Amino acid sequence: MAAAALAKRYAVGRIRLRPDLEASEPLGELRGRPATVTASDGVHLYAEVDGREDAPLTVVFCHGYTLNLDSWHYQRRDLRDSYRLVLWDQRSHGRSPRIPTEDSSIDRLGEDLAEIIETLVPGPCVLVGHSMGGMTIMALADRHPEWFGDRIKGVALISTSPGRLGEISLGLPALVAKAVHLVTPSAVSILRRGGTLVDKSRQVGNDVAFLALRHLGFADSRNVSPTLVDFVESMIRSTPFEVIAEFYPALVSHDKMNALGVLNGVCTAIMVGDEDWLTPVEHSREMAKALPEARFTEVPGSSHLVQLERPTAVNDALRDLLKRAAADGGAEAGGTGASGDGVAADG
């Protein structure tokens, strides 16, 4: 055990000695005007309004599972000078308070998004969702299809899925993946009962978490910035295990393929890393097939956290979407556009 601990510390130490291009990046430090939005069930959701108040379009960012609004750091940094931005923490994530509730469903998140839009968006908007945030947008489309095309001018679905996540391989052989899916729900349920103890162990296991996230969360694990890995790991670690366990069944049972048709009425962009094993490329291709007018961007050399790993490619596709949505809504685009067709690479 001691030898393993020393080897782990040695490996992490060597990684941290390498040049780190993101060392001076103020990750998680960008702030906007704080706002509190009360959901229909009384839950208080934390949000921030940033960027140009006079912009013709508002961009609403919906973060993914175990993350928070700071996961949009590079998008906020690069778009705040041209657009009005709304970023929010999904219930029990980030700065939104931990609420002991059994309603940790994707449909509930869709209703929360509706409240965010009603309260903080005065005019036309574009919705951007990563992973669970993309599912949140699909749930909104299922509940409020009349908003799309009128109030909502565009949608970006990043590293997400319309459903069947319980069938993905997780990068494992088929039989092993099937076994993992069979035992995971029970294991999560058991660990949830000891959530406080699990959280304490997570606090002391930073080196292990660092190495695991570096390899599982990023495609280019050898060159990814240690500062960026630490940033993501801190977001995940700050999410209580009970919250992780409560939302897990919702993700596995999520099925909103039928709601995708609503998005045919708006400008849509679909983005995914070519090495994403959590929401595989095939799921994004399936969405692109269901939405033939959508612009599909498969980002090479990136995994599930594509908006952090290859922000230039994601931001170029977002600018293209925003330019199209502004033109569709009769508003003047706030930023310079770049083509989002086909395969994009980070610059």
Rank of each mutant, 00 (worst) to 15 (best):
M1V: 14
A5C: 13
L6F: 09
L17F: 05
R18D: 07
L21Y: 09
E29H: 13
A39V: 05
D41L: 11
Y46N: 07
C62P: 01
D70R: 15
R76F: 04
D78S: 13
S82L: 06
L87Y: 07
W88L: 00
W88H: 00
D89I: 01
Q90P: 00
E102I: 12
E115P: 08
G123I: 10
V126L: 05
S131P: 02
M132T: 03
G133I: 02
G134K: 06
E146R: 12
D150R: 14
R151N: 10
T160P: 06
S161F: 02
L165F: 03
G166K: 06
S169D: 15
L175R: 14
L175A: 15
V176T: 15
P185W: 01
L191P: 01
G194R: 11
N206F: 13
D207L: 14
V208Y: 13
V208N: 06
F210L: 10
A212R: 13
R214H: 06
D220Y: 11
L228M: 08
E242I: 10
F247M: 02
Y248N: 04
H254M: 06
W277C: 06
L278D: 09
P280M: 12
R285Y: 09
E293C: 10
F296D: 08
T297N: 11
T297S: 15
H304E: 04
T312K: 14
N315M: 05
R319V: 03
D320H: 09
A325M: 03
A331I: 09
A333F: 04
S339I: 11
D341C: 08
